[in-house]
């Protein structure tokens, strides 16, 4: 199981500024290790952001997103205390879901 995401959601007016740091190797399938073997691709493909129980953003991700990716989103109409749930799924079928509250 991958490490937890770090999610920060801060409210500016009625817009929640959501930042998430995902812990993931994001191997693009082209990199070689020290022994010269190609490291197989292992990367996040889809992610969703839910706020207050409603899905608001669906992301599709390819191999060109950096290792331990950082994403930033803005969602209008959020209130302090709303629960932010972020989920991802990678090409090996691994998933992870983490949550935080809008502050």
């Amino acid at each position: 199981m991958a490490d937890p995401m770090k999610i920060r959601a801060s409210l500016k007016g009625d817009v929640a500024d959501i930042r998430v740091l995902v812990s993931h190797p994001m191997e693009n399938g082209q990199r070689k290790d020290n022994a010269g073997n190609t490291v197989p691709a292992h990367y996040i493909q889809t992610m969703t952001v839910e706020i207050g129980g409603k899905p608001v953003i669906q992301g599709q991700v390819g191999t060109a997103v950096s290792r331990n990716p950082v994403f930033g989103f803005k969602v209008k109409g959020a209130k302090a205390g709303d629960k932010v749930v972020i989920k991802w799924r990678d090409n090996k079928g691994e998933t992870r879901s983490d949550e935080a509250a809008v502050a």
Binding site: G72, F73, K76
Partner: peptide, 17 residues
């Protein structure tokens, strides 16, 4: 590299590396 769909409330404003 990546794409994002937005539903109600989400702004067309993203940040990515």
């Amino acid at each position: 590299t990546c794409s994002f769909d937005f539903a109600e409330g989400a702004q067309g404003d993203i940040q990515v590396r």
